[in-house]
Design a protein around this nucleic acid. Structure first.
Lengths: 109, 109
DNA sequence: TCGATGATTCGATAAATATGGAAATATAGA
DNA sequence: TCTATATTTCCATATTTATCGAATCATCGA
């Protein structure tokens, strides 16, 4: 992940509603959620939500697929991993910025 | 770190010049760098840089100390760690977003 | 083909952010 | 105290971002 991609991803997450959306989608897992449900959960009108979903999508952090009339959005874990990798490598120096996780998540290190 | 603090930190890093500054300060380590040197290194006029440094400072990502006539800025590793912790806990779900580092950095996990 | 549903795009507007020169502030040395 | 240096604050302006109703587009079932 290069610095421009990183900036787009950071900017995408640096907004109240979009951070809420991303967290929601991470919780929802691979199944994802339809745009309408996301808008309702976050409490934002559909057209505004569409704007935010487009931002997240453009940043590569979420995926879109059609299921009948609904557009289902889901988190792209690999992209998030790429962002974490960039920050770890470029913004944590020799110091470990990696949080001390009580129980290390599966696959960590 | 709560979600508002996280948003401020993400927004602070989501800008070309500020991301460059933060990377520079991470490299510089605890010693830090004076504002003028940062502005010159990044190629931005002093007044603009002052604005960006204030943003990073307000987000808690960097520290300021005076040394004679110079104001020395340095990265706050703990704040960056807090951001990483928030993202790991809230935006990576059960999946591991932690990057697969070839050689795990010291202190990782 | 028609109407209903789920979602996006358009367009106008409001708000926040970025830029950089000029003026002001703080410190140090002569 | 005067001057030079390092940096910030002020100000005006340009740019980007966010908001949301209305119009449009895509899909499905009857």
């Amino acid at each position: 992940m290069d610095s421009n991609t990183t900036i787009r991803a950071l900017a995408a997450l640096a907004q109240e509603h979009r951070l809420a959306v991303f967290r929601l989608l991470v919780q929802a897992g691979e199944a994802g959620l339809p745009a309408g449900a996301i808008a309702e959960a976050v409490g934002v009108p559909a057209s505004s939500m569409s704007f935010h979903l487009a931002q997240l999508s453009h940043a590569g952090l979420i995926r879109q697929r059609r299921q009948s009339r609904s557009l289902i959005y889901s988190a792209d874990y690999a992209a998030m991993g790429g962002l974490m990798a960039y920050l770890t490598e470029n913004c944590c120096g020799g110091q470990s910025c990696a949080p001390k996780v009580e129980a290390a998540p599966l696959g960590c290190c």
